[in-house]
Amino acid sequence: MTLCLQGRQLGCERDDRWLFSGLDIEINHGEILRVTGPNGSGKTTLLKILAGQLNDFSGALHWNGQPLSQVSEQFAANMLYLGHAPGVSAWLTPLENLAWYQALQGERGSEEQREAALARMGLQGLEDTPIGHLSAGQQRRVALTRLSLTPRALWVLDEPFTAIDQAGVDALEAQLAAHADAGGAVVVTTHHALNNARPLCHIALG
C-alpha cells in the first residue's frame, strides 16, 4: 500500500496577510517531514491544512491522487492529528479519554488493550487518575498513547515534544522513525532537531 499526500501551491491568507503562499509539499510513505519556522510563521496553520481541518486556503490538496475534499472520510480514517493542546479532558482518567478516542473512530477496543498501551508509555499505575492530577508531560504522554492505540498511516503532530522529558523525547523520536520504516508517514513541527538518519524532508516557513 502506498500513501501520498500532495499539496500544490498552498497558501493561507489571514485578514489580508499571507502567512505563506506557493508552497509545494509532497509526503510519501516512509518519510518524515519536519516543518520549522519562527513563531507566527504559520506552522500550526499549515499542519491544520494538511490535516484537512481548515478549508479556507488557496491551492489544492490530494490524498493518493484524489482531491482531499472528495475522500475526506477515507482520509480521516488514515490520519492521526495531535494539536498544540493535548486533547485530553482534565476530568477524565487516561483510560476514559482513550476509550472515547477509540469510540470516535468507531472502535470499541478493550480495557486490556488500553492498559497495555498506557503501560508502554510508562503510565502504569496512573490509569485511573483524572488527567487534571497529572503533570503536563504525563498528559502529553496520554495523548501520545493514541499513536500506538489507534494505528494510522499518516501522523500529523504539532509540537509533540512539548513538556516531555529527555527519555520520552528519545523514545518518541525512535517511534517516529519506526513508523516511517514500517511504511507510515509523519508531518511534525518542532523546535527540537531530530537526530536520526531518516529520510527527513524539511520545510522552513517565514
Partner: peptide, 30 residues
C-alpha cells in the same frame, strides 16, 4: 515510551473498511 519491538507494517484503510460506526461514537460521547 514504547520499546521498539516488532513493528507491524502500517496499513492504509480502504474505503470499505473505513465505515465508522456512529452509534459507538455517540454512546461513548454521552
Amino acid at each position: 515510551m514504547p520499546s521498539s519491538d516488532t513493528t507491524p507494517q502500517v496499513a492504509i484503510v480502504s474505503e470499505s473498511k473505513a465505515k465508522p460506526r456512529l452509534t459507538v461514537a455517540l454512546r461513548a460521547t454521552l
